Amino acid sequence: MDAKDGFRFWHYDGQSAVRRSVLLREVGNGFVPQEPETGWTGAPVDWAELTVIGTEGGRHAYGHRTLPGWRMGFNGDAPPAIAAHLPQAERYGRWIDRWGFWPAAGAFTLVAILVVCAVLAAPRWIAPLIPRAWENRMGDAMVGDFGGRFCHTVAGDAALKALVARTDPKGEARDVALANIPIPNAVTLPGGRIILFDGLVQKAASADEVAGVLGHELGHVRNRDTMNALVRQLGLSVVLGGFSGNAGGTLNGVLALSYGREAEAAADGVAIAQMRAAAISPADTAAFFERMGGKGEAGRAAQAMTWLSSHPLSAERAKRFSAAVQPGARYRPALSPAQWQALRGSCAADRNVAKAFESPF
């Protein structure tokens, strides 16, 4: 290819605003632009230094990788000898254009699936690696956000201690407390802290019902479900910063956690096993779930938003506890009538506890 091929380009050299009509003279791996009418000759350019600016409507424009303002282009089709050297426009991107759209789309989909699977599975192996000391510090920091709403009376504390001794004889929970919050719920904080809300105790018809809920929360402690769910829903940042000035925000996250069907089923299994070992009947817990869930699946779905909202209610859960009742077994109440009344009256009798209202968070 040389200038006598006669194919004209429009050209700006980037040094002036003059638009030139040039021919290309081949030199080594590139060319030199020349304008015969004026005798102007530009600097040599390698073909590899060209970049595509646009190739639409029969108009083609190219730039230079290192020379700002350098432009060259033409209308129509270039001769084969020139077209063979010109860079091709990227339709989707360099590697997609090299592979083709559908192979690239397939590869991207596969990578996306692997990433999603890794993200979903990550908490299961990350949570056990989190040092217990870090988890304990997170739970300890969150306790302060309850704002003095822990209920304490001599008789109430003794009753709660007796209930914990029956349900958790090995002391797997670091602490179990009763909070003056009228929501029928319970929550497991990081570090093995379990908080029973007074609303739960008031809604319960017996200490056996509370024992079932406490045993369920113990299952979350044993399996470190809270840390697993926090890592899944809030990310590792909660582990690194959740106990350093943002405990309140993290506590809100804990109260809104959902553990998933497998974790909930495993926690129910722990509750049933603990109640069996303590000779506490699971029948009352089954009745509690039935009562809290209302009649019909629609009623359960609606009321689960306020009653035990972090632990979805279902007919299957109630049936499981009911099926765990062993015919002929000699069960003993979780607490004596006096102890049960002391626990139920603890928040009302504690003159120093902070005033209850619907949600302190």
Rank of each mutant, 00 (worst) to 15 (best):
L189Y: 01
G293N: 06
P282H: 02
V238W: 09
A179M: 07
F243D: 10
K355G: 12
G156I: 02
A287K: 14
D168M: 02
V239G: 00
V213M: 13
P131G: 10
P103M: 08
G39T: 08
N29H: 13
I96S: 10
G260S: 12
G191D: 04
L86F: 13
G296N: 09
P36M: 12
E26G: 06
A338C: 04
G57P: 11
G212Q: 07
R59P: 04
W40Y: 10
E297G: 09
A105S: 13
F146W: 09
R149A: 03
F31Y: 08
E264N: 06
F74P: 04
V119N: 01
L335Q: 04
M1G: 08
R25D: 14
F31L: 05
E264I: 05
V119R: 03
G215Q: 07
A286S: 10
I280C: 04
A315S: 15
T51L: 15
A301M: 06
T285A: 08
F197H: 13
A286Q: 01
S346Y: 01
A256L: 13
F9G: 08
E358F: 13
A48R: 13
P282C: 09
P103L: 06
F321L: 06
W95C: 06
I113D: 00
M292E: 06
K203N: 09
R320G: 00
K355N: 11
M275K: 02
G58A: 12
T41G: 10
R166P: 12
P169C: 02
I272K: 11
S309D: 15
A48M: 03
G76V: 09
G14I: 02
A354G: 10
G241S: 10
L160S: 06
R132S: 15
K295R: 07
W95I: 12
R344S: 00
N352G: 08
N223W: 01
V22H: 04
